[in-house]
């Protein structure tokens, strides 16, 4: 799956998440936990971290 498609998938999943869930930890990035909200900021702004985030989420089958 291309990075672009992964981003679209992430945004779709995120949009459908209840508000309480968005504050949950979904990944460890550079040894530190990040939540759905943190991931959203990175992905939505196409940062360098977003590539790693999306890759990991796909590997873990969270996306």
């Amino acid at each position: 799956m291309s990075m672009e498609t992964a981003k679209e998938k992430f945004l779709k999943v995120y949009a459908n998440l209840p508000l309480g869930i968005r504050e949950e930890i979904i990944l460890i990035l550079e040894g530190k936990p990040i939540t759905w909200n943190v991931a959203y900021l990175e992905v939505n702004n196409n940062t360098k971290n977003s590539q790693e985030i999306l890759r990991k989420l796909e590997e873990l089958k969270i996306l």
């Binding site: 209840p18 508000l19 309480g20 869930i21 504050e23 949950e24």
Partner: peptide
């Protein structure tokens, strides 16, 4: 009940 923004027990879901 637990998924709303006002719940403090989402970790149980």
């Amino acid at each position: 009940k637990l998924v709303t923004s006002e719940s403090s027990d989402a970790s149980l879901i």
